[in-house]
């Protein structure tokens, strides 16, 4: 083997090949988006790196927890108890309102609203990609995560799932330039589309006529019209409105309710009674499926068919 000769002959040829391949992949991935399944597989293969990358941080935070003083812990416990009490108070009121709402909806003979199921996911990678706002969480298709799934945090809407590996999922934040979602003003009920502009603390409200009844400080709730996000979750609050008559539309900017720049724990949301359901214990589920393999194989196609209809 004399590597000298092999290399020098084919270097330029290899570059051409690599560039052609890269271009082909770009076209396939971006323009035709046929790479989704491949991407899911590759994501699963490469996920160990993502898990490895958060190990130091997790160790540090565990150390930090271990080193916390007794006094701090007791203090924290105290405040948490107080919080809990307050929450429970609010919860009672919420239960009452839910029942009342149900009764009223019955009176109006309109459909009852479905509850949603949630699962907590932890952010394991905030992307170093400079041109896209994405995060990776530690739940994947094994947990029932699906593409297009809405993601919230404790404050409001965060984004949606755009690709899923076995144990990881990638979430596009609402602040990404390629993300827009339909909302409704909580005060006036006006429907507007909120688009990301690549800033974590600013969103753009699109195509607002000068005469529309929006005001600074209005809360925008998801309207549920896009079919991705469930209705009624807080998305953003309007910060400024610039009604410059020389422009075709008023320039409205809003600030996201969720703290997009310091997300840690997220909530994945499933509609109750929907096609996809969360899997809270994937290993157990997998075992059950193995044991009852012939049976589940028989039932699966049926359920898929009914879902399709």
């Amino acid at each position: 083997m004399t590597p000298l000769f092999i290399r020098t002959v084919s270097l330029r040829f290899r570059l051409t090949l690599a560039l052609l391949l890269a271009f082909l992949l770009l076209v396939l991935d971006h323009r035709l988006s046929v790479m989704e399944p491949t991407r899911a597989v590759l994501n699963s293969i490469i996920s160990p790196i993502q898990y490895l990358a958060v190990v130091p941080e997790q160790l540090l935070s565990r150390l930090d927890q271990n080193l916390q003083s007794r006094k701090n812990l007791r203090q924290e416990n105290e405040t948490l108890k107080l919080d809990m009490l307050e929450m429970q108070g609010q919860m009672q009121r919420y239960q009452f309102l839910v029942r009342e709402n149900e009764r009223l909806r019955n009176l109006l003979a309109s459909e009852a609203r479905e509850d949603s199921l949630r699962m907590v996911a932890e952010v394991i990678a905030v992307d170093s990609n400079n041109f896209s706002h994405q995060v990776v969480v530690n739940k994947g298709s094994a947990h029932g995560v699906f593409i297009g799934q809405p993601v919230l945090d404790d404050q409001g809407v965060v984004g949606q799932v755009i690709s899923v590996g076995v144990s990881t999922a990638r979430i596009l934040l609402i602040s990404d330039q390629n993300h827009a979602l339909p909302t409704r003003s909580a005060r006036s009920g006006i429907r507007v589309v909120v688009q990301g502009i690549g800033e974590t603390s600013e969103l753009d409200v699109m195509h607002v006529p000068h005469s529309s009844d929006l005001a600074e400080g209005d809360l925008l709730l998801s309207s549920g019209l896009g079919g991705v996000f469930p209705e009624g979750y807080p998305v953003a609050r309007i910060v400024t409105i610039d009604r410059d008559d020389s422009l075709p539309f008023a320039r409205v900017s809003a600030r996201p309710i969720a703290h997009l720049d310091r997300i840690r724990m997220l909530l994945l949301v499933w509609q109750a009674g929907g096609e996809q359901q969360p899997v809270f214990n994937p290993i157990q589920e997998y075992r059950e499926r193995l044991e009852g393999a012939p049976e589940s194989e028989g039932t699966n196609p049926e359920t898929e068919e009914t879902a399709g209809e």
């Binding site: 992949l25 770009l26 991407r39 994501n43 490469i46 041109f131 896209s132």
Partner: peptide, 9 residues
Amino acid sequence: ILIGSSFGI
């Protein structure tokens, strides 16, 4: 894949 940019960039 790790960064989530389009393949090939």
